[in-house]
Write a protein that binds this DNA or RNA. Structure first.
Length: 424
RNA sequence: GGAGAAAUGGCAGAGUGGUCGAAUGCAACAGUCUUGAAAACUGUCGUACCGCGAGGUACCGGGGGUUCGAAUCCCUCUUUCUCCGCCA
């Protein structure tokens, strides 16, 4: 949620920036300001009425004490009248406020100045590309066939037990996941992130806090009996740990990491690009989250990006880093770097991580603040990144590391976790 | 799931209809003293909204109600604790 102050300061500048995100409903900015004005003038009236009423109530108390009942009764007439007026005005104040919030919540975050214009992923800017694209020999297999061949995963079993897009990992397939998770968590711990095991279901407030509601409601599984949402990423519960908190400046930065299953409905996805592990409803991911001083957030964004890049390098994968363009950067994000790895059998890039700075967009919803050196209360900046999401990493490792004899070599950094150096 | 108790400022904890935005203690911050620290002493010390400002308004778990007036009375929801039941 954008800070109201920013709209008040310079509505036209906000509109111009939102246009970079291809946001169409720019009139909402004016709507918000108009409703805000209505709210403020209504509050002024309410406050004045209440002030009068409070004073009279005090007088009445005094008069009762002095035994002047009749005088008190005279004043009561006015307080009763005031009560009605307050109720009336309060209602119009609340209406204005509710409508204002409803409109404000529909505005996406303002993109950072470095976000390139553009309408789709075609327009994302490639910042860096590293590594050679492996050339596979005759008979090389896509990952879904390797998985089947070595009995690492079954989608059919998942269909039987749950439905399409819920893979069942078995044997070395399951073990490889465990190895990756342990490796990623150790790396995050070494980088100073506090490990957290959060709830996998969250309430409405938490889903709102990080921006999943109301914007992306259809993406989450909703447990209607208890009105809980299954998390699409550990970002949601972990960031919400600090919802409503007023921090001291020396508590910053707060660095947390966590591994979780992630659940995504992915409604509307289809086609060859979603085969195998390319897109599933349930997957594992290690997430890193930071809450930082506003002056530091872009520095931290780069630090987090470097952490993610290090993981990919240690796994020996070919990768590139993109800055998402205005049309592709998410609703809540100000600046996002995507990390893609080269899938040698599919011969295409697969997104394995997204690192974003949300500035105050999430923390304004969550009211996560700190007191600065001048004892002023300010919103902190929130950031997060995948470090990393497993399915496409597994897909790429299997494809790129497959050998002529059909076995798959395991990257050296994973061997201590996996317990052996190859599959098959 | 059943029975009972409770929810007040960063923490602990008073407050049962007006003088309460709320005692007191601890913590924190500033100062005095000290070579330095501790102790002691003095002062400051919740959040949000409105207002140029003086100041006003709201908030004692959430919502609603009674009253001229509610932390205090009533209803309701939520959460926590204790006991019982079930259980990885």
């Amino acid at each position: 949620m954008l800070e109201l102050r920013k709209l008040r300061d310079d509505a036209e500048a906000v509109k111009a920036k939102l246009a970079i995100k291809n946001f169409k409903d720019l009139h909402l900015v004016d709507d918000v300001l108009k409703l805000d004005e209505q709210r403020r003038s209504a509050q002024l009236e309410v406050d004045n009425l209440k002030s009068e009423s409070n004073q009279l109530a005090k007088q009445i108390g005094q008069l009762f004490k002095e035994g002047k009942r009749e005088e008190a009764d005279k004043i009561k007439v006015r307080t009763v009248e005031l009560k009605g007026l307050v109720k009336e005005k309060e209602e119009s104040m609340k209406t204005a406020e509710t409508q204002m919030e409803a409109a404000l919540v529909l505005l996406p975050n303002i993109p950072h100045e470095s976000v390139p214009p553009g309408t789709s992923e075609e327009d994302n800017k490639v910042n860096k590309e590293r590594g050679e694209k492996p050339v596979l020999g005759e008979g090389a297999l896509p990952h879904w066939e390797i998985l089947e061949k070595h009995h690492l995963m079954s989608l059919e079993l998942g269909v039987k037990i749950a439905g399409a897009g819920f893979p069942v990992f078995t044997g070395d397939g399951a073990r490889l996941q465990r190895a990756l998770v342990a490796f990623f968590l150790d790396e995050a711990n070494n980088a100073g992130y506090l490990e957290v095991i959060p709830p996998l279901l969250v309430n409405e407030q938490s889903a709102f806090g990080t921006g999943q509601l109301p914007d992306k409601e259809g993406q989450m599984y909703h447990v209607t009996n208890d009105d809980l949402y299954m998390i699409p990423t550990a970002e949601v519960p972990i960031t919400n740990i600090y919802r409503g908190e007023l921090l001291k400046e020396d508590q910053l930065p707060i660095k947390m990491c966590g591994h979780s299953q992630c659940f995504r409905r992915e409604a509307g996805s289809y086609g060859a690009h979603v085969r195998g592990l390319n897109r599933v409803h349930q997957f594992e991911k290690v997430e890193i989250v930071q809450l930082v001083h506003p002056d530091k957030s872009y520095e931290v964004l780069n630090e987090m990006a470097a952490h993610v890049e290090g993981l990919i390098q240690k796994l020996g994968l070919t990768y590139r880093i993109l800055t998402l363009c205005g049309g592709d950067v998410s609703f809540a994000s100000a600046l996002t770097y995507d990390f893609e790895v080269w899938s040698a059998a599919q011969e295409r890039w697969l997104e394995v991580s997204s690192v974003s700075n949300f500035e105050t967009f999430q923390t304004n919803r969550m009211k996560t603040r700190f007191k600065d050196e001048n004892k002023k209360t300010q919103l902190v900046h929130s950031l997060n990144g995948s470090a990393l999401a497993l399915p496409r990493i597994i897909a790429t490792l299997l494809e790129n590391n497959q050998q002529a004899d059909g076995s798959v070599t395991i990257p050296a950094v994973l061997v201590p976790y996996f317990g052996k150096d190859k599959i098959g």
